[in-house]
Structure formats: structure tokens, C-alpha cells
């Protein structure tokens, strides 16, 4: 295993080079870049107004108040933003697969999946990140230790989210272009992540920890920020690791079926 450490460093160096190129690309249109960031922050703020209005009237939902919503939005928006900004191509992987654009990544001496998902950055993700951090700071749960846990929580949650996107889009290998289905699944995980987890019970709650692991993107990292317990941290870490492993396996299996646009694809 002596080589694995240096190979990890090599991949990181490569990743930074790609991110730099992405940033340069975005800077080519700096006005649009800034507009996207500000627009996304405003967009999120408007969306959050719903909860402000809601809690104005109902005060508390099974132990959750407005400050909990601030916290959950903080964690989820930041995690979403990190994934969008650093691994933006994960959002359009279906098209990349269906249109045969994996060829390019396959002809390069780098890990295909890592290369493919990091090859595009979605500028508005930066808006989500800034919004999310602000939302956390306003939540009333701020502490320096909490900030550390926030960072750890966001890293794990964005990993889980990216892995979920990869799995959803990899269905394209078997079904033909599954962009619409993947979009539905992404909406599902986001929607569920942004609601108080206390609303759900029984099978619904089970669903949120398994098939649509929204809990890993919202409530679990949020409770990690509130309080460090082994259950929170271990659960989140395990969840993210399992999802990531699954994503890599699914993608690899799919790659054996990859047709590089040589066969005519039919949209599902």
C-alpha cells in the first residue's frame, strides 16, 4: 500500500488543476458569474420566506422551530453548493453518458468518474455556499466548535449527495437517457432534506434514510452541528461512505455497458 498515499496526492493535484480551469472558464464571463451567485442567494432567501411565514403562524412543529430550519437550510444549501461548484457535472451525467461524451474521460489516464464529475462547475453553487453559511450563522446555533462540526457535516453530506446523483444518473447505462428520472430523484432528496424530519415517521422515515437518503443531507448533519454524538458522526460517515462505495460500483458496472454513442440511444 506504499503507492496508495502518493497516488492519492497525485489525484488531488489533478483535481486542483481541473478546479482551477473551471474557475478560469467561469471568470471569462465574470458579470454572469456574479449575477448567478447573487441570484442564487436571493432565490434561496425567497424560498426560505415560506418557513418564516409558516412559523410565524404555527410557531413549532413537533419540537422544530424557525432556528432549526435556519440550521437545516444552512447545512443543505452549503452541501448542495459544494457539490454543484466542485462536481457540477454530476448533475448532467446522464447526458454525458447518453451522448457518448465519456469517451474523452476514458481516453485520459485519470479516474474516469472523478474526472467526469469534476469537469464542470456550476457557478451558482457558490451562491448556495455563501447563503448556506449565512443561514447557519443566523440560526442561533453558532459556536466555534459548531463551525468545525458544520464543516465536517457539509463535507460528508456533499459526498453523500454527489454519490446519490451519480447513482441516479448511472441508471442511464441501463435505461437509456435517464435525465428526467434522475432529476425527479434529485428533487426528492432536496425536498425531503429541507423539511423538518420530525414530520415523518414509520415507513416515510425509513425511506429518508435509505432509498432517498435525504436525512444524510439535512437532519443528520444538522444535529451533528447542534451536538457531537457518535451516533450523529458515525451514522453520517457510514452513510456517506456506503453511498460513495455504491456509486463507484454502480458506475463501474455501467461502464461495461457503455456504448459511446455508437448505438442509437432511445430516451426513456
Amino acid at each position: 500500500m506504499e503507492g496508495s498515499k502518493s497516488s492519492m496526492r497525485r489525484e488531488l493535484k489533478f483535481l486542483f488543476a481541473i478546479w482551477k480551469a473551471n474557475l478560469q472558464s467561469a471568470m471569462e464571463y465574470h458579470i454572469a458569474f456574479i449575477a448567478q451567485i447573487l441570484g442564487m442567494m436571493l432565490n434561496n432567501a425567497f424560498y426560505f420566506l415560506f418557513w418564516v411565514i409558516f412559523f410565524e403562524r404555527f410557531k413549532e412543529i413537533r419540537g422544530w422551530g424557525l432556528n432549526d430550519m435556519f440550521l437545516v437550510f444552512g447545512v443543505t444549501a452549503t452541501s448542495f453548493g459544494v457539490t454543484a461548484f466542485l462536481f457540477g457535472n454530476a448533475f448532467s451525467l446522464s447526458d454525458v453518458i447518453a451522448q457518448g461524451r465519456l469517451d474523452y474521460y476514458l481516453s485520459m489516464p485519470r479516474p474516469v468518474l472523478l474526472h467526469a464529475v469534476s469537469a464542470r462547475s456550476i457557478p451558482s453553487g457558490m451562491g448556495d455556499i455563501i447563503y448556506g453559511i449565512t443561514s447557519y450563522l443566523l440560526s442561533g446555533y453558532f459556536s466555534w466548535g459548531g463551525l468545525g462540526r458544520f464543516v465536517v457535516g457539509v463535507i460528508l453530506a456533499s459526498t453523500a449527495f454527489a454519490a446519490f446523483l451519480i447513482i441516479a444518473h448511472s441508471l442511464t447505462f441501463w435505461l437509456g437517457n435517464a435525465a428526467a428520472l434522475a432529476r425527479l430523484l434529485m428533487n426528492a432528496i432536496l425536498t425531503f432534506a429541507l423539511y423538518p424530519i420530525t414530520l415523518f415517521n414509520g415507513p416515510a422515515k425509513f425511506l429518508l434514510f435509505t432509498i432517498v437518503p435525504a436525512a444524510l443531507m439535512g437532519s443528520v448533519p444538522a444535529s451533528l452541528v447542534r451536538e457531537l454524538t457518535w451516533q450523529n458522526l458515525g451514522g453520517l460517515f457510514l452513510g456517506a461512505a456506503v453511498l460513495l462505495g455504491l456509486a463507484i460500483v454502480v458506475f463501474r458496472l455501467g461502464l461495461r455497458r457503455y456504448e459511446s454513442g455508437s448505438a442509437i440511444q432511445v430516451e426513456v
Binding site: F14, A17, I18, A21, S25, E28, Y29, P109
Partner: peptide
């Protein structure tokens, strides 16, 4: 969106 030289340099890293 980038000048070719930027891609060349990126390839150097890759």
C-alpha cells in the same frame, strides 16, 4: 471558453 494554452497546461497536469 479557455484559450488553448490553458488546456495544454491542464493536460500537463493530467
Amino acid at each position: 471558453h479557455l484559450p488553448a494554452i490553458d488546456t495544454f497546461q491542464l493536460f500537463g497536469k493530467i
